[in-house]
Design a protein around this nucleic acid. Structure first.
Length: 280
DNA sequence: AACTCGTACAACCGCGCTGGT
DNA sequence: TACCAGCGCGGTTGTACGAGT
């Protein structure tokens, strides 16, 4: 049995959106909020598939979109995140406020790929072209998350190949961090094993720090000892299993003694709403 | 002016995941 | 446990537009 179509294609418009359609969609979402995409077109009086409405809103009509050219900083951040996450455009977009996964994907394919090739870097493996060609099966990069005790910077080294972690592996790690006190060991076990340094000249070290304001907030929380764990921040503080506020963790994890970072693997403590949604 | 080609990006499609029943 | 609906993601396609000839 095949999958049922997401909408009745015979009665839906396709192709470019008109101004009137945009206006209807924006007006409806402003009045009723996002969600229920399947029923939205009918309710909003649009002859469009729900998926199409969602895409139009997310990629083009959302008021918080930045639009305009990518900055050099955004370029470099995309490159570094891509070397770590691969084609996980939604995750990458989660680190670039105002940018959408589609926008970043397009930008990658049209600009950054060429830019990397011009630099002699393979856009897939993020290593020098010669090396990538001679060792095609090797993985793109190695991520080593190190969090010095009194630092809020996560350092990720790309100097040797790794296996790109699946989303559930990355966030599964987060879950394990919350559920296990022995996090140094846990993290080390999850870190991809370093092979020999294959491209020492290619230094794509990524340092992800919380934005300035968040960093300041972190500092003040550290002083006052009021940090809450990821579970608590989601309103799950009643869950003994998930809440580790009472546990002291010395590397990556949650601690209320003010000496470490909450759920900060890969700098994800600064996740915005979109990222949080993707983690669910 | 007309045509071709390349580029950029909006939009579509199919699949996987998740939650509800 | 199986099934289904809905949503979200990533890959691909379609098309507008500008540059070059």
């Amino acid at each position: 049995m095949g999958r049922s179509p997401c909408c009745e294609k015979a009665h839906t418009n396709k192709g470019a959106w008109t101004k009137e359609e945009d206006d209807r969609l924006v007006a409806y979402i402003k009045a009723h909020g996002e969600g229920c995409w399947r029923s939205l077109p009918k309710a909003a009086g649009l002859l469009r598939c729900g998926k199409s409405c969602r895409l139009r809103w997310i990629n083009y009509l959302r008021p918080d979109l930045k639009r305009g050219n990518f900055t050099e900083e955004e370029d470099e951040l995309i490159i570094k995140l891509h070397s770590l996450l691969g084609n996980k455009w939604s995750l990458i977009a989660g680190r670039l406020p105002g940018r959408t996964d589609n926008e970043i994907k397009n930008y990658w394919n049209t600009h950054i790929k060429r830019k990397l090739i011009n630099r002699g870097i393979d856009p897939v493996s993020h290593r020098s072209m010669n090396e990538a060609a001679s060792n095609p099966e090797s993985s793109p990069a190695t991520a080593t998350a190190t969090t010095p005790n009194n630092s809020t910077t996560t350092t990720i080294s790309f100097s040797a190949p790794i296996t790109i972690p699946k989303k559930e592996e990355v966030f599964g790690l987060k879950d394990e961090i919350f559920n296990n006190n022995n996090n140094n060991q846990q993290l080390q076990e999850h870190q991809p094993r370093r092979k020999t340094e294959r491209c020492p000249d290619l230094n794509l070290d990524l340092k992800i720090s919380p934005p300035y304001q968040q960093q300041q907030q972190q500092n003040s929380e550290m002083k006052t000892g009021t940090r809450i764990c990821f579970s608590c921040s989601l309103g799950l503080e009643k869950s003994q299993q998930d809440c580790n506020c009472s546990q002291s963790i010395n590397m990556v994890g949650c601690s209320n003694n003010g000496s470490s970072i909450c759920y900060d693997f890969l700098g994800l403590s600064a996740l915005d709403y979109r990222s949080m949604e993707m983690m669910k």
